[in-house]
């Protein structure tokens, strides 16, 4: 691995300043970034650690539930007063990954098979940065792509809590990412369904299912629907057709589990 400068800022403002350096990168829990640096897919000039600042760590509020950007998956699993979100966080990766990995890091990376983007998009979360607030519908732009600008820091994420919600993940057992994952959230205003692990564009909403479930919140409401395999990922773990099939299956399971 190439060497780099390590910066441990005392505040978000200091972190933002340090991130102005050319080729500097923000370091959350490092559970994706460090492996990519080993593979020389990333070679930052400096790493600015976001994990040591108290102002970016913690879970607070009951509706919305507000989670600091540097809060680990393990802490969200233990503390978030939003059961479907806590359950999702408790199933990310493995225990060691949950000890280190952070919600801000996961959302900023926007891995097309990551769990958190599905929760943020289905819940209509608001991503707060050191510069602005971005609603989830505008945040996820494409595979590994978000609305974040260069050096922008996710300071917290605010989750409205639905009346009913559930996340179902079809585990890819080697990576422990979602082969397909579906988060269903029922609000008074309607149902939102977000799908991860399927599309080449990353996390996305399944609008046909949202309409059907808003009219009738039951797995039976999905019966007439089908998911096209166009634009879905295809790899040795599952073809696009298989993933398309799983989207519907996992949505049905999530609705049943949400009750």
């Amino acid at each position: 691995m190439h060497n780099f400068d390590f910066v441990k800022p005392g505040s978000v403002a200091e972190a933002a300043e340090a991130l102005k350096a050319e080729d500097a990168m923000a370091l959350g829990g490092g559970q994706t970034l460090i492996p990519t640096m080993k593979a020389r897919l990333n070679a930052p000039s400096a790493l600015v650690s976001l994990s040591g600042m108290a102002e970016m760590v913690g879970v607070s509020g009951s509706d919305p539930v507000v989670i600091g950007g540097a809060t680990t998956h393990g802490q969200v699993a233990a503390e978030a007063g939003y059961p479907a979100l806590a359950a999702l966080a408790g199933q990310i990766g493995d225990p060691a990954v949950r000890s280190r990995g952070t919600i801000g890091g996961s959302l900023a990376n926007n891995d097309p098979a990551a769990c958190y983007p599905a929760a943020a998009l289905a819940s209509g979360a608001v991503i707060k940065t050191d510069r602005r607030e971005i609603v989830a519908d505008d945040f996820f732009v494409g595979m590994f792509e978000t609305a974040l600008e260069e050096g922008e820091i996710i300071t917290s994420v605010s989750f409205p809590v639905p009346a009913k919600a559930n996340y179902q993940k079809f585990l890819q057992p080697a990576s422990r990412f979602a082969l397909v994952g579906v988060f269903v959230a029922q609000f008074d205003s309607g149902v939102r369904v977000a799908v991860t692990g399927a599309s080449e564009e990353g996390v996305h909403r399944w609008s046909a299912a949202e309409e059907a479930l808003s009219a009738n919140f039951s797995a039976e409401a999905l019966e007439g629907l089908s998911v096209a395999s166009d634009g879905l990922m295809s790899d040795l773990h599952g073809s696009a057709e298989y993933r398309a099939h799983l989207v519907k299956v996992m949505t049905g399971r999530a609705v049943r589990a949400a009750g």
Binding site: K8, I34, A96, R100
Partner: peptide, 11 residues
Amino acid sequence: KSVKSCTMFAV
């Protein structure tokens, strides 16, 4: 907390 020490810098 359990950690994979290959995925954490000493700093």
